[in-house]
Write a protein that binds this DNA or RNA. Structure first.
Ligand code: FES
Ligand code: FES
Lengths: 149, 149
DNA sequence: TTAAATCATGTTTTCTAAATCGTGTGAATA
DNA sequence: TATTCACACGATTTAGAAAACATGATTTAA
């Protein structure tokens, strides 16, 4: 569904968003630990999001990543598009070079409604929503035993 | 969504099914050409399906692959599970080691309904259905220009 | 009976996503 | 101003999926 990079990205922004309640920046070490992802790899992904202004960063001592007021409206679809592009929206379910109404693959009709539902979900869900549930302890970013792999 | 192997598998079985109308076995060369996939790779995938009795094969001259009466009821879900396992049904959207109701990730609730719809689609769709539409020319397994990539 | 055709199987190579490394740059603080 | 901390960025390495190869086994037809 999503690439590994995209999964890490989503997990990371949700986590950072929970910390932002306290108006703090979060160090990459802490982020990576919290979401169970490789440190260097995670930092690469977050830098990409920073370039696209989907989040912010501060260098130097007391530096880190943050999601401020200007990022409160970021939605899942923004993260997914930033990392995975829009292949999940216009890619063919059977791998034809492109999905088209004009030349549909045998699965096109059935796939269409699923993709629509997925898209609507990604468009309507904000990172903030997800982070609030995480704060309330309703959801988790790690398995209880701590192993994510 | 699906692995490349799985995409090839689905395209192949649909194609073979159309030929079965004429009660013929189809050579791997013809199959690979028709679905725009690498010959050796495709044969490996089909052999896997044969072992699981999801299709049949004949060796020797005039040999090839076929889908007979005993395979008329094969559904998309059978192919997908044979090749990709059931990670698309019990894998977590955010890559946690496992999807669970007990310890849901932040996307679990939203993802659940989409996965349900996908599963129902795969369960209810037979390869035969898809092949009939292909025969009628309503759908295609290749882009018109022949390039699938 | 022999040769050609075709699937079966194990091994090797290639390609790309994923992960790591090394060095640079900016900011805080002493 | 010097030192240290933390992100930025390009380059490299690793791992696993995808693709190709080589050889074996089985059937048909000449
Ligand atoms: S053409 Fe395959 S999903 Fe649209
Ligand atoms: S726990 Fe992530 S989708 Fe169910």
């Amino acid at each position: 569904m999503f690439s590994k990079s995209c999964e890490y990205a989503i997990r990371a922004v949700i986590f950072i968003c929970t910390k932002n309640e306290e108006n703090k920046v979060v160090k990459i070490q802490e982020i990576a630990e919290a979401i169970g992802a490789p440190v260097y790899y995670t930092s690469k992904i977050l830098q990409q999001l920073c370039r696209l202004k989907l989040m912010g960063s501060l260098k130097g001592q007391n530096g880190g990543f943050y999601m401020g007021l200007e990022h409160k409206e970021i939605r899942l679809i923004d993260i997914v598009q930033a990392i995975d592009g829009d292949k999940i929206f216009n890619g063919c379910a059977l791998g034809l070079s492109q999905c088209s109404e004009r030349n549909p693959c045998p699965l096109h009709a059935q796939f269409k409604s699923i993709r629509k539902e997925l898209k609507e979900m990604l468009e309507s869900t904000t990172i903030l929503d997800l982070s609030l549930n995480l704060l309330k302890g309703k959801t988790t970013l790690k398995k209880l035993n701590g192993i994510i792999k």
